[in-house]
Amino acid sequence: MNKTAYKRYLRTQNWQKLRFEVLKRSGGACERCGYRPYKRGGLQIHHLSYDRVGHESLEDLIAICPRCHMELHGIRGKRSPKNVKH
């Protein structure tokens, strides 16, 4: 899936439903480090594998804080939610 199609997919009802379920499962904490953001929207959803994008299950996804998300994608430098957002 190319970048444009992936961004379009992230706006679908299917993705929004999966995202909601993963956030609910996380209980408001990063599923990698346990950090609990003080404000709503502080967690992001990360694909553990991109093999089934569009057909993923809840087990393919984790809720993580922006810092962990950047680390998982190998992004260094300024740690800002703007750098990685899914």
Rank of each mutant, 00 (worst) to 15 (best):
N2W: 07
N2Y: 12
K3H: 15
K3P: 11
T4F: 10
Y6P: 03
Y6I: 11
K7T: 15
R8L: 11
R8H: 09
R8F: 05
Y9F: 15
Y9E: 04
L10N: 03
L10V: 12
L10K: 13
R11W: 08
R11S: 11
R11E: 11
T12I: 12
Q13H: 10
Q13S: 12
N14D: 14
N14A: 15
N14V: 15
N14Y: 13
W15V: 09
W15D: 03
W15T: 08
K17V: 13
K17T: 10
L18I: 10
R19N: 09
R19S: 11
F20A: 14
E21F: 14
V22W: 00
L23A: 02
L23W: 00
K24T: 05
R25H: 01
R25C: 00
S26Y: 00
S26E: 00
S26D: 00
S26V: 00
S26H: 00
G27H: 03
G28S: 07
G28R: 01
A29H: 08
A29M: 07
A29G: 07
A29T: 10
C30K: 06
C30T: 02
C30R: 05
E31W: 01
R32N: 14
R32P: 08
C33L: 04
C33M: 07
C33Y: 00
G34C: 01
G34I: 00
Y35E: 09
Y35Q: 10
Y35C: 04
R36Q: 09
R36D: 00
R36L: 07
R36W: 01
R36A: 02
R36G: 02
P37C: 07
P37Q: 06
P37E: 04
K39A: 12
R40L: 14
R40P: 09
R40S: 14
R40H: 12
G42W: 02
G42R: 06
L43V: 02
L43Y: 01
Q44K: 10
Q44R: 06
Q44F: 01
H46P: 12
H46V: 12
L48N: 09
L48P: 04
L48A: 02
S49R: 09
S49K: 05
S49V: 04
Y50H: 15
R52Y: 09
R52N: 13
G54R: 11
G54V: 06
G54H: 05
H55K: 12
H55C: 07
H55Y: 10
E56L: 06
S57Y: 06
S57Q: 06
S57F: 04
L58T: 08
E59Y: 07
D60C: 09
D60V: 02
L61M: 04
I62N: 02
I62G: 01
I62H: 01
I62W: 03
I62T: 05
A63R: 01
I64F: 00
I64M: 05
I64G: 00
P66V: 03
R67I: 06
R67S: 14
H69R: 07
E71C: 13
E71T: 14
E71A: 14
H73W: 02
H73I: 01
G74W: 03
G74C: 08
I75K: 13
I75Y: 10
R76L: 15
R76T: 15
R76D: 15
G77D: 13
G77F: 07
G77I: 08
G77E: 08
G77C: 11
K78W: 10
S80N: 13
S80H: 10
P81H: 05
K82N: 13
K82T: 14
K82Q: 15
K82E: 15
K82C: 11
K82I: 15
N83P: 02
V84E: 05
V84K: 05
H86E: 13
H86V: 11
